[in-house]
Design a protein around this nucleic acid. Structure first.
Length: 1022
RNA sequence: GCCCAGGUGGCGGAACUGGUAUACGCUACGGACUUAAAAUCCGUCGCCCGCAAGGGAUUGAGGGUUCGAUUCCCUCCCUGGGCACCA
């Protein structure tokens, strides 16, 4: 037998597939359909790379499998060929982009053919062919006619290197998505598509896509960025003007101590005369405008702003006058371009307020969430704690007394306010009061423990405890052991609340039990829940936590140990910084709204002070590019009629074939220089008119291409509705994660729009989206020329053949995870296919049936082969359906390892070849042909395994007659047993007891419990 | 900072609804074949103790639930991705 020669076999089958067309898709009423789509490539000069291979191979396996399963399968391919690289190359080399594109397409197609991808080339499309872009232009006009394509002048993202405007989605980290250049702002006249009109539909549509990965949906959802809030008007003192703000937290309006407007805000020019420092303000605005976004949002950048002197706004809730600032931390393009600043409850306003010394007013305090499970803990605690507290109660003596006396001396006046939380025994309020100070207590002289006992429900009790912390500038807050009752999260919430109530520089003192001892005491009780509900603080942990909450620890005192050895720790801390509380909670300092939960207050206050509104982060899509190599926007500008659509009969507006097409950089398209093309007649009045010179973005052609595949040759329609009704929607769409907020969002938008126009049959174009992970270089880094770690797929094809390339790519790991290519690993798959070739050919040339002798009726596979084969078919079938290609490859190898020395019929061998076919199409076609010749099947009827039927598996043949039972003692494996398939617990137990290790383990012990899982495990608990 | 996804031998990775962790492949080592090498075939191979039989610990760390946890729960750490002055 000759060694497998992939080069020869692959060339043969490529030819065969091209001429016999087994991948051709035709609408068939008899068969169910599958539309399998994979993102079409941009054909670059470098050719296709590993990044393309991954989704293509996966999609191909999926498509080949479904053809064999009896589906009429549409698996098309085309070329997304408009774009900058071709154009830039053309400029550099003086070759027209249409020429390089043609060359690149031919090369990419050659690569695809070599990889054995089963595309229906009869449906090939190219976005740069006039027959295709005629319809891209026509579809653009549908948007235009519905007012969803519009012209507007504004500040847009501009890439200085590519010399063109960009959409919001094309700016990644402030850089151009294509070339990585830092994006600038430029004021330009642009065409937009009103994608914002579809923000809600795009968001709602995601709910109808249960088969999409959550990550993809979430990313689109975040990009659309819906937020519900209120618009509230602030009046300007002495003027009729008002400033409208958008806020998601109308519940904090009583804390709005100033306003901020964006530099672009119109009120500035309206009040030019009234602003006494206009010069300064204007200077700030000019400076802000010149900044690139990346500069403006740079991390850690300090907030800047200028007050509009001479004008004051009125807070509609408090009726107080508040200053108005202009600052670039407020964006002109979001909401109303103005905000009410609530420094106590918004991090940005907080930073700004601190810098410019603006008042910070707390109007929301946290509510401590209490887990119902904690109640059990508290009960146990109570039972133990009263005893514990008795033992550790300090009188005011020793170090505590010294500290109290010292502190009281330090605070100047006797009407300083002190708040004590919890038990009165720590600070001893009576003692402090005896010195003439006033102490506000939360629960009188009664200890916290007693207080707890006196109350019915613990939840209320604890809430009362925290609720009593009023926001009032205390000098000292003392909490005795109260904080012990909370876990780390709750501790944070309470200390935040204390922070808000304490004067700057005020003292927060609290005691906790010595952690080691408290653990010893309470940890013993089995009913005591873990740290989930009850935190044993160590000193170090406490210090760290406090620091993050705005306190510095001044001192930590220890009480003297009681005779039983228990101690307390007293932490004395000073408030060193204010905290900004941005969470929800309870409203305070807000007049009639005091005491409301923020959840209730938000809609209520929104209604009273303004109106509820919804805002989206999504921006309209900047749809024009100032470049040559794209679809011309099919509009004509007439002096009398404005922008007039090119009549349908005149479409497409072809790109003029010229020699020079450098971008101008001025914001004008190079087409503006081509006078002969530019000048035309108005379709309405026939007067001289001028063509629109901008072209469409890269994303235009791909926004509808899946619709064209269903009807690629239609001269009268972009896509026939009847054909769509057969093929639509796309059942699986393979592609990259990087397109989630670009192509994937854009194409959903186009489809939703066309659906509304009755032009497409399905609301959502893709039922299932399957993203793939990227393939890294052998060094685990991203493949790149500069790193020199690029693996060229064609090199692998040449060396090992396409089947190996395909199978190894899949073997690397799960389709959606990031994997590193390995140059040594690839030989494993190559060896496997060689072994399969040799093994299969041996059987084909000398069938086991023949060897076993003639006349022997019903020659069969060994039982083992039957079992393994059915297992394999089941595994592979399920793996493909679930996109787990990597484990299928393992299963093939395992199967071969298992049965290679067994008796196997040709029929079984053919089943194996069939299930392997989607993964390794070439070698399997060849083997299938050879075996068919031996079996004298009429080979001219069947031209490809693609017409063969996918084998079914027989579940009953997978079951073994015996099963292995694992014998465990207390969950540890002590032995194994082979027993009959449905052996009873009793039988298995008796057998298990005979095992030597089991006997040994049972010496001196009795079996308390037996856990038996039929066919799997017996666990003896002793 | 916020939101996702993930963390298993020397490496890529496998493990059904909680039931023998490390399948499959690579690497490494030993052997056969060969004048020799490559290729191929056979065997060994996670860690610690042990000559062995055997025992012990182990799925990022710590804790919990359970007869039993890679899988479920809590806390923390790390890596990758997305968003980010969006009010």
């Amino acid at each position: 037998m000759q060694k497998y020669n992939p080069g020869k076999v692959e060339a043969k089958w490529q030819k065969q597939w091209l001429s016999k067309k087994p991948f051709k898709a035709t609408e068939s009423k008899k068969k169910p359909k599958k539309y399998i789509l994979v993102e079409f490539p941009y054909p670059s000069g470098a050719g296709l790379h590993m990044g393309h291979l991954r989704p293509y191979v996966a999609a191909d396996v999926y498509a080949r499998y479904h053809r064999m399963k009896g589906f009429e399968t549409l698996f098309p391919m085309g070329w997304d060929a408009f774009g900058l690289p071709a154009e830039n190359y053309a400029i550099k080399m003086g070759v027209h982009p249409s020429i390089t594109t043609k060359k690149n397409v031919a090369n990419a197609k050659k690569q695809m053919l070599s990889w054995g991808l089963s595309f229906d080339w009869g449906r090939e499309i190219n976005t740069t062919s006039p027959e295709y872009y005629k319809w891209t232009q026509w579809l653009f006009l549908q948007f235009y006619k519905k007012g969803l394509a519009f012209e507007s002048t504004g500040l847009i993202n501009w890439c200085p290197k590519d010399k063109t405007g960009l959409a919001n989605e094309e700016v990644i980290d402030g850089k151009c998505e294509r070339c990585g250049t830092v994006v600038e702002k430029k004021e330009l006249r642009q065409w937009y598509l009103r994608i914002t009109a579809y923000a809600e539909k795009l968001l709602q549509g995601l709910k109808e896509l249960p088969q999409w990965p959550e990550a993809v949906k979430l990313q689109q959802e975040n990009w659309i960025g819906k937020s519900t809030g209120a618009e509230i008007e602030f009046g300007i003192k002495n003027y009729e003007l008002r400033i409208k703000v958008f806020t998601t937290r109308p519940d904090t309006i009583f804390g709005a101590t100033y306003m901020v407007i964006a530099p672009e805000h119109e009120i500035i020019s309206n009040l030019k005369l009234q602003i006494s420092n206009y010069k300064e303000v204007n200077k700030y605005i000019e400076k802000a405008k010149s900044k690139a976004d990346i500069e403006r949002t740079a991390e850690g950048r300090e907030k800047t702003g200028v007050e509009l002197k001479g004008i004051k706004a009125i807070n509609p809730a408090t009726k107080e006058e508040v200053p108005v600032f202009v600052a670039d931390y407020v964006l002109g393009s979001y909401g109303t371009g103005a905000i009410m600043a609530v420094p106590a409850h918004d991090q940005r306003d907080f930073e700004f307020a601190k810098k410019y010394n603006l008042p910070i007013k707390t109007v929301v305090v946290p509510i401590v969430p209490l887990d119902p499970k904690q109640l059990a803990t508290l009960e146990t605690y109570e039972n133990n704690a009263s005893k514990y507290v008795e033992k550790t109660v300090r009188q005011v003596e020793g170090e505590y007394k010294l500290w109290v006396d010292k502190f009281l001396k330090e605070i100047s006046s006797k009407d300083s306010s002190i708040l004590e939380l919890g038990s009165g025994r720590g600070l001893d309020a009576n003692y402090v009061e005896s010195l003439g100070y006033k102490v506000q207590r939360t629960d009188g002289v009664q200890s916290f423990i007693e207080y707890q006992k006196s109350q019915g429900k613990e939840v209320i009790k604890l809430n009362l405890l925290t609720d009593k912390i009023e926001v009032k500038p205390y000098d000292l807050i003392f909490a005795n052991k109260v904080l012990l009752h909370f876990n780390s999260d709750q501790f944070k919430i309470i200390v935040k609340s204390i922070n808000a109530s304490l004067k700057r520089g005020g003292i927060f003192a609290f005691s906790v039990m010595d952690f080691a001892k408290s653990k010893e005491w309470f940890g013993k009780d089995p009913k005591m829940e873990s740290e989930r509900y009850f935190k044993y603080w160590t000193e170090g942990e406490m210090r760290k936590e406090l620091h993050g909450l705005g306190f510095t620890v001044l001192d930590v005192l220890e009480t003297k140990a009681t005779d039983t050895g228990y101690k307390d720790l007293l932490f004395i801390t000073k408030k060193c910084s204010d905290l900004c509380f941005t969470d929800y909670g309870k409203v305070i300092n807000s007049g009639q709204f005091d005491g409301l939960g923020t959840d209730v207050a938000i809609p209520k206050m929104a209604e009273i002070f303004g109106t509820q509104v919804v805002n989206y982060k999504l921006r309209d899509w900047v749809f024009s590019r100032q470049r040559y190599w794209g679809e011309p926007i099919p509009l004509i500008h007439c002096e009398d009629h404005g922008a007039v659509p090119v009549p349908e009969k005149d479409l497409p507006v072809k790109l003029p074939n010229v020699k020079k097409y450098e971008p101008t950089g001025t914001g004008e398209s190079p087409l503006a220089d081509i006078k002969s093309w530019l000048k035309t007649k108005c379709p309405i009045c026939k007067k001289t008119a001028w063509r629109e010179t901008n072209t469409m973005p890269q994303w235009a052609g791909s926004s509808w291409y899946w619709l064209r595949y269903m009807d690629p040759k239609n001269k009268n329609k972009f896509s026939d509705l009847q054909k769509q009704k057969y093929w639509s929607p796309v059942d699986v769409y393979f592609g990259g994660m990087e397109h989630t907020t670009l192509h994937l969002l854009y194409s959903r938008f186009w489809n939703l729009f066309l659906y509304d126009q009755g032009l497409v049959s399905q609301k959502e174009p893709y039922v299932l989206r399957k993203p793939h992970g990227i393939i890294l270089g052998p060094d685990g880094e991203k493949m790149s020329k500069s790193r020199g770690n690029v693996v060229d797929p064609q090199t692998i094809v040449k060396q090992y053949g396409a089947d190996v390339l395909r199978m190894y790519e899949m073997f690397l790991g799960p389709h959606e995870s990031m994997v590193a290519w390995s140059d040594t690993g690839v030989v494993g798959v190559s060896r496997f296919l060689d072994r399969v070739w040799n093994w299969a050919n041996e059987i084909i040339e000398a069938p086991h049936e023949a060897r076993k002798g003639k006349g022997e009726k019903g020659v069969q596979d060994t039982q083992k082969v039957e079992r393994e084969l059915n297992k394999l078919i089941k595994k592979v079938t399920e793996d493909i359906e679930n996109f787990r290609f990597n484990t299928s490859i393992s299963a093939f190898m395992e199967f071969h390892n298992q049965i290679k020395d067994d008796f196997i019929t040709l029929e079984s061998l053919q089943k194996f070849i069939k299930v392997l076919h989607p993964f390794a199409p070439y070698i399997t076609e060849e083997l299938a042909l050879r075996s068919a010749e031996v079996l004298k099947l009429k080979k001219n009827k069947v031209t490809s395994l693609q017409q063969a039927v996918w084998p079914l598996f027989d579940e009953s043949k997978i079951l073994e007659s015996e099963s292995e039972i694992v014998v465990q003692i207390n969950g540890k494996v002590r032995g194994k047993l082979r027993v009959a398939l449905n052996a009873s617990e009793e039988t298995v137990k008796n057998e298990a007891l005979k095992l030597e290790p089991v006997k040994q383990a049972l010496v001196g012990d009795t079996i308390k419990r037996v856990i038996f899982i039929k066919g799997r495990i017996i666990n003896l608990v002793i």
